[in-house]
Amino acid sequence: MHDLVAFLEANSALVLANPAAFATFAVLFGGGGFVVGRYLLTERMANLESRIARRDEEIAELKGEQKAPKRERSMVPLIGTTAICPSEPERLPMPIAQLRAERKGNQRV
């Protein structure tokens, strides 16, 4: 950068004498450099854009899998076990007074 400043200081008289020619060459060389750089980097930019598109598709796939999780097999062994139905009422022991009252109602006279 220091060399560029020194070059401009040394040639400032030439630039000030012909500003139109300096501006023309600056635009030509600047534009030419941009076009050449764009041409050389077009393939790289297309590659990066395709990678971005592929990543977006992968993200969409992973979000779709996340919504519908796969069912795994139960880790509880089913052979030799019994099932308890929670809808059945639990059988608790009756109080003795209630038991005697039921027996008296069932006796034949």
Rank of each mutant, 00 (worst) to 15 (best):
M1H: 09
M1L: 15
D3I: 07
L4T: 14
V5P: 00
V5F: 05
A10L: 08
N11F: 08
A13I: 02
A13P: 00
A13Y: 01
L14N: 12
L14S: 10
L14P: 00
V15L: 13
L16R: 15
A17Y: 02
A17V: 00
P19T: 09
P19I: 07
P19R: 10
P19V: 08
A21F: 09
A23T: 11
T24P: 02
T24L: 13
F25W: 05
A26Q: 02
V27F: 13
G30H: 02
G31T: 08
G32D: 04
R38V: 03
L41T: 11
T42P: 01
R44D: 15
M45Y: 06
L48F: 05
E49T: 02
S50V: 11
S50M: 14
S50I: 12
S50L: 13
R51C: 03
I52H: 04
R55K: 06
E57F: 09
I59N: 01
E61Y: 06
L62I: 08
K63A: 09
K63P: 01
G64Y: 01
Q66L: 15
A68S: 14
A68M: 09
A68N: 15
R73L: 10
S74L: 03
M75R: 05
V76N: 01
L78S: 02
L78E: 00
I79V: 15
G80K: 01
G80T: 00
T82R: 13
I84P: 00
E88P: 01
P89M: 08
P93K: 06
I96D: 06
I96S: 04
Q98N: 06
L99M: 11
R100N: 09
R100E: 13
A101G: 08
E102R: 08
E102D: 04
Q107R: 15
V109M: 08
